[in-house]
């Protein structure tokens, strides 16, 4: 878990309006802002912004979000956990999850 610390002011960047999480349409600027608002890891950013919680479940943006958070915190990416692995691994409709078969 990354140590809580005070970050310097958020300096706007020219590509802040670039979408990073396509499924939930979250921009780079929103992710950077969230870090300054105290979301210091992937889990918090996901819950706060829903980045990586859409259809692809972060398969595309997971590494990108991690890189942005790490850069904003001035730490190496390896200091950040990946998102927690949870079932279902692939997007699945609720009616299918509800049709659960235990027997043959």
């Amino acid at each position: 878990m990354t140590e809580r610390k005070l970050l310097s002011d958020l300096v706007p960047q020219p590509d802040d309006d670039m979408v990073v999480c396509r499924c939930e349409e979250i921009t780079k600027g929103e992710i950077r802002r969230a870090v300054h608002d105290g979301m210091f890891n992937i889990h918090e950013a996901r819950r706060f912004l829903r980045c990586g919680m859409g259809l692809c479940q972060g398969q595309t943006c997971g590494r990108l979000v991690k890189a942005i958070i790490a850069r904003e915190l001035g730490i190496s990416q390896s200091e950040l956990d990946d998102a927690t692995g949870r079932a279902p691994m692939r997007p699945t409709e609720m009616r299918i999850i509800a049709s659960e078969v235990f027997g043959e």
Partner: peptide
């Protein structure tokens, strides 16, 4: 847990 057709199976 596997999705097969419209069901999930164990």
């Amino acid at each position: 847990l596997v999705r097969i057709g419209d069901e999930t199976r164990h």
